[in-house]
């Protein structure tokens, strides 16, 4: 695994939020590499900076300092439009609150990223249908979010994240709003996708969810506290 080029690379990332004269150091010198095809779980207590990191990797936010590369490209050198295209083509994002458009049905929600695509994506409708079938919602395409269960809504969101065939799937507590049975289904779906070659990064509080991932990274106070891919880290800190 170490032989492959990292698809996500972070060097000494900090993210400081300023509120008035108060400063919150959400990320404090994070350095880590994630390789193509990995399934990574990010864990840690509330406020430890997991979401902050995910938003940086997802090209939704910019670091206060440090540098990061996605798929070999330095994000600091990209403008707003290029970041938008990166999110559209290379990244798929799944949120805890699903974030589906309430007035559009499942099919239309999944089509949306394809419609924003700037490179040729072929038959948009066929692709959207295929993605919904892949997540097991082939028979619910014309249902609006309100008419779907939580697990089904999250499947629609995953189908939407997959529509543009991203290389990386990012999920911030995707099962946080779901019961344990649905959680298992969603995590199995993620595992399937990972086996098909997609790099998956999941934030979670639950050890059971994290157990689906081959690698676990623990955060504490904006720093990487432990990383199963680098067992020496903990020892280096004397923990």
């Amino acid at each position: 695994m170490a032989a492959t080029r990292p698809i996500i690379s972070c060097r000494d990332l900090t993210r400081i939020y300023r509120m008035g004269d108060q400063e919150v150091r959400a990320l404090d010198g994070v350095t880590l590499d994630i390789h193509e095809g990995e399934f990574v779980a990010i864990m840690g207590p509330s406020g430890s900076g997991k979401s902050s990191l995910m938003n940086l990797i997802g090209a939704l936010d910019r670091p206060t300092s440090g540098e990061m590369w996605i798929n070999g490209r330095a994000l600091s050198e990209m403008n707003r439009d290029e970041l938008a295209d990166l999110r559209n083509e290379t990244l798929g994002f799944v949120f805890q609150q699903f974030n589906l458009l309430p007035r559009q049905d499942a099919f239309q929600n999944v089509r949306l990223p394809l419609r924003y695509a700037r490179k040729d994506v072929g038959d948009i409708d066929a692709r959207a249908r295929a993605c919904l079938e892949m997540v097991g919602l082939g028979s619910r395409m014309d249902h609006r979010p309100m008419q779907l269960s939580g697990g089904q809504q999250q499947r629609v969101a995953i189908a939407r994240a997959l529509a543009n065939r991203p290389r990386i799937l990012l999920a911030d507590e995707p099962t946080g709003a779901l019961d344990s049975k649905t959680t298992v289904e969603i995590m199995q779906l993620m595992q399937d996708l990972n086996r098909q070659g997609i790099t998956v990064v999941v934030i979670t509080h639950e050890a059971e969810v994290a157990s689906y991932a081959a690698r676990q990274i623990h955060f504490l106070d904006g720093k990487v506290e432990a990383d199963t891919a680098h067992p020496e880290l903990k020892r280096a800190r004397g923990g």
Binding site: G58, L60, R80, D81, A84, D85, R87, N88, E89, F93, N99, L101, L112, P113, Y116, A117, R160, A161, N164
Partner: peptide, 9 residues
């Protein structure tokens, strides 16, 4: 959300 899935400004 639209921006997150790739809409440009």
């Amino acid at each position: 959300l639209r921006m997150a899935i790739g809409a440009r400004g």
